[in-house]
Design a protein around this nucleic acid. Structure first.
Lengths: 203, 203, 203, 203
DNA sequence: TATGAATGAGTCTTCATTCAT
DNA sequence: CATGAATGAAGACTCATTCAT
């Protein structure tokens, strides 16, 4: 009897996504979700132990996407700064980001804007922290490798760039940006970022 | 009238600020605020008609600061784009922003991050919208005045810059940034933005 | 300093009458009355010990009018039944009732329709009881005096006539009946009642 | 599902009827009803969405009885006035009224005397209005059909008869009138009404 | 007398969760 | 697995009344 179970899970996740999107975590009630999904209120607890766990399952894919992005890009310190500063590289990376994001818009929106009150309410913050730390590490590395670069960039400034990346992501998620516009956005973003960094680092 | 009225108001606003900061609007309860402030629960209603009004009074100064910034800077379309692109001008403006903000950190943080559930929950969004619209108008003006500039910047891109300004603001508010670091941050921010815009507009 | 005090009393009674009329005793709040009268909330308690006492003072005149009617008419058992059954007598009595009532419409309305929750909430009931008892006594008397009359009227029937008198009163109070219409109403009422009683008693 | 659902509904309705009867709608609290019924306070809301809905369910049968009476009797304009003035007809109709009422005494009492504050607080008034309007229509009809009748009865007078009917009803509901006494009451009522109307209309 | 602040019990209603079947 | 009933704590807010000045 695997089929019916999975069907209920799916209905629950979909209904919960709609309700959380509409009301936010705190104002969404389990009753709402029961009604929207057609699943009996108490039966929900046979699938998820709590409202919080349900929420975590709803936004799970979004969390995984972001974690993967962090691992794959910010984590890979092998790439030299010179290569990283090339428009090609940058555009590819940011393109990947946005691509991943594109198919997880709705759970991402929940995770970013509707998590207040849940155990993930600090996810955005913590994620930005981790990303920042990785970039800082990367900069330290690069400074050791290329001492000629005037890379006395403040930690806050580094943080800002992570946050801006995030802000871009949030806007893309919030608006319904089609693939074409998306490409131009990313292109402009990369242009600006590159120019900025070069200026800052006197490259 | 054991304690003079204003003392109670102050105690209430301070306690409410702490509680709202700790729990957010929705999870903060009037009981909490009563306990934290030492003011009797029902007595709170002699000062503020509702939880929402109390919240609005707590973040009132922050709202006013932001409204003033919008009026004074984004509103003044007189300045030519060439002047605006000068580092001097920019730094001054952004400096003013950050200066104003500096002394309203805590209410600003509440307004920006803790308003979910209150009547101001959409303030951040609406403020960003209004700011964006003003900048768009400004760009349209400039394009008419300087047709040689390749200012076919996407609307989204304009929005992004407003949002980034906002993101900077948010980070400044969130961290405890001292005045010295603040100056460097602003300086770097202006450098990057200027370089980016010049690049984009092929100036 | 008799003047100012009396002025406050008057303002309070008038405001209270308006509020009680608008909301009924239970839903009217002392705050409402304070606001409507312009008298400080706690100052009301210098004039009336409680909401209930205030209400009783507001409807006091109405109570007195009704008590007087009971004493003067239902109480005076001297009049012979033959005389009482004459249209002249009846019309005069009912006319007096309605006349008295005419100038106490508003407090009467409060007493009759808005007293729920106050210590006078049973006044209407108790008044009808007393009136009924008096009439019953009167009938007993008459039966002793005029054995030939088939006056085996049920107690309930007697009660009904008191209640109907009351119902007439209530309608007159509720609607704004002008003096001319009032006269016709009373006339018709008496016609019907007389005819009814004669029929019942086989006079 | 310890006790079957209907049992709880019954217990709730009975307890609510008792509490509403004792205190009236406004002063009756859900806590009272919970305690009286033995049903958990919050559990009540699994059966009725609000205090008002609970009240409406308690007095529902009474409402239906009255609506039915209005439809079946006041509505049927086919009967000629001559027939209607016959004691037989009248007695039958009023008898039906009282019969219906007999088995709904308690909810009727709630509806008529205890509804202040609920959404049915104006039911009595509105019902009397509707009944009056129907009777007025009937009189207009009869006047057209029997022009010889001096039926220049004032509108107020018509209203009074409806109200008296109502007053009778209220008294029957209030007292515990046994079936025998009831019959005599109705009989006397009809006698009086008939005599009165004949007199008024110079039949 | 008059005031504004204070009090404490009370209102209806909602919620996430658990129980019994 | 599924169900509907049950629970207990908590929510914002109101009120008549009293206190201190």
């Amino acid at each position: 009897m695997q089929y019916p179970k999975d069907d209920v899970r799916r209905k629950l996740l979909e209904a919960a996504a709609r309700i959380f999107a509409r009301k936010g975590y705190l104002k969404a009630s389990m009753r709402d979700i029961a009604a929207e999904s057609g699943v009996g209120l108490s039966n929900i607890y046979n699938y998820y132990d709590s409202k919080d766990e349900l929420f975590r399952h709803v936004v799970g894919p979004a969390v995984q996407v972001l974690e993967r992005l962090l691992d794959e890009h910010h984590g890979r310190c092998g790439t030299d700064i010179m290569a990283m500063c090339s428009p090609d590289y940058c555009e590819r990376v940011v393109g990947e980001y946005v691509g991943f994001i594109d198919c997880q818009r709705r759970p991402l929106a929940l995770l970013l804007f509707r998590a207040q009150g849940s155990s993930l309410e600090n996810f955005r913050e913590e994620f930005a922290d981790r990303a920042t730390r990785l970039v800082e590490q990367y900069f330290a590395d690069m400074k050791r490798r290329h001492p000629q670069i005037a890379a006395d960039v403040s930690g806050f400034s580094i943080r800002m760039h992570t946050v801006w990346m995030f802000a871009l992501l949030e806007e893309v998620v919030k608006r319904d940006v089609g693939p074409d516009e998306l490409r131009q956005i990313v292109s402009e973003y990369v242009t600006i970022e590159m120019a900025g960094w070069r200026e800052l680092m006197k490259l």
